[in-house]
Amino acid sequence: MEPTTTLEATYTFARFLSEVFTGQNLALLGAFLAAGFAGIGSAKGVGNAAQAADGLLTEDPDMFGKTLLLVALPGTQGIYGLITAFLVMVKIGIIGTSVELTIGQGGYLLMACLPIALVGYVSADYQSRVAVAGINLIGKQKDAVGKAITNTAMVETYAILALLVTLLMIVFFKL
């Protein structure tokens, strides 16, 4: 291969990279990670909890109201991811007035999205296990709804803390 073409190829590739990895796109990647991973976690979580609830409902159809909260709880991480994604979209002007971002700024927003993306995904999964256990618990003891919900909410604490970190990082982001 001629040296000039290697150089040209490298140059083309570099240009490709610089066009793909703009500040805007890095920030969007962050938004995707937040909404995507927290959402996947919640989908798994709500799915597990809802299956357990349906199992209980085959025995006792009147328990729907009591299981509803437990089924809904692992769904909140997805919402936190959504909030994050929306905030990022507003900041970078996908929604509202358009702005230009440097790669550094885009990278900052990407990083800011990571706490809720990771913690949201993992906590929704673990939370759903507690929710499933809680549903089994109220299947045996109808009065234990409060305890089951409280235990499930314990796991959520860490998703909220991660959301807090993410929100603060995005809100204090200066262009």
């Binding site: 936190y80 909030i83 929306f86 507003v90 929604i95 909220i160 803390l161 807090l164 929100l167």
Partner: peptide, 19 residues
């Protein structure tokens, strides 16, 4: 601090809806 996180969540979703 969850008071702040949940309070902000309410406000942010509302503002996105408005936008």
């Amino acid at each position: 601090s969850r008071i702040m996180a949940l309070g902000l969540a309410t406000a942010v979703i509302a503002s996105v809806v408005n936008l």
